[in-house]
């Protein structure tokens, strides 16, 4: 499968000299289009830094990042317009839906193509089609405050997918949901990844959904990312993964 996103030896250091904090020390990871992977790790492991680098919110100190066919960072060189890059190549799903409260469901989803310059009518048609595909088409005219939590999360997913980005970053998307709903959201994301040929990285602490991933990346105190081969992940060791090095030994 084609690569959705690739990181090669990505380093991120905050500050310099004696006070330097090495948040990422050479991360390598690759997620193919159509694939859903999990990213787990204890607090302070560099997970958020990695997520921000993946989301083109902060620049790595060194290394190389590629989204789809486009190199976005290569040892100091970077794409000039990171906003446009985020808008066109990356979809975001947050812990809470964070829908824009003053836009209705359709415009929340259609906002990105509108920002990209698509005519309003075209963008709204795209949004309605996507909302139909996610089974929230009947709520297209509602305001976010009128939706249930599950509906809001589906709208947020639709917003992330609307520009057909090669990669979607989901930051603990199941955190506010109960077990069944959480699993349903992951199943939906798996379907969407296949249907839209998108690489999806789900950052999670949610023990319930960890067994569902075919591949997991565990970011550890050593500030490196290690790929856990397919089939290794299971509920019991996954829980232990959050406990740091000891857990690593258990894995």
């Amino acid at each position: 499968m084609a690569d959705g996103i690739t990181l090669e030896n990505v380093v991120k250091t905050y500050g310099n000299g004696d006070t330097a904090v090495h948040a990422l020390r050479g991360v390598n990871m690759s997620v193919a289009k159509g694939e859903v992977v999990g990213l787990i790790g204890p607090s302070g492991s560099g997970k958020s830094t990695l997520l921000k680098c993946l989301g083109a919110v902060i620049e790595p100190t060194s290394g190389k990042m590629t989204i789809g066919d486009q190199c976005i960072y290569d040892n100091g060189w970077k794409v000039r317009d990171l906003r446009a890059l985020r808008r066109d190549l990356i979809g975001f799903i947050f812990q809470a839906p964070y829908l824009i409260p003053f836009l209705d469901v359709t415009d929340n989803v259609a906002l990105l193509p509108m920002l990209a310059g698509k005519p309003n009518a075209v963008a709204r048609k795209m949004a309605r089609d996507l909302l139909d595909a996610l089974d929230v088409g009947h709520r297209a005219a509602a305001m976010p405050s009128q939706l249930s939590g599950g509906e809001q999360q589906r709208v947020a997913i639709a917003r992330a997918l609307i520009n057909r980005p090669p990669v979607i970053l989901a930051d603990e998307p199941t955190a506010p949901l109960d077990g069944q709903r959480a699993l349903a959201v992951v199943a939906l994301l798996n379907d969407m990844a296949q249907q839209f040929d998108t690489a999806i990285i789900i950052v999670t602490h949610d023990e319930k959904i960890i067994p569902t991933f075919k591949r997991l990346y565990n970011i550890r105190e050593g500030l490196t990312v290690e790929e856990i081969p397919q089939g290794i992940a299971s509920p019991a060791p996954a829980v232990a993964l959050f406990e740091g090095d000891t857990a690593r030994d258990k894995v």
Partner: peptide, 12 residues
């Protein structure tokens, strides 16, 4: 929060 989201998703 909405402004942060707007900026993150690429609003100029």
């Amino acid at each position: 929060r909405e402004i942060a989201v707007l900026k993150l998703i690429g609003t100029r």
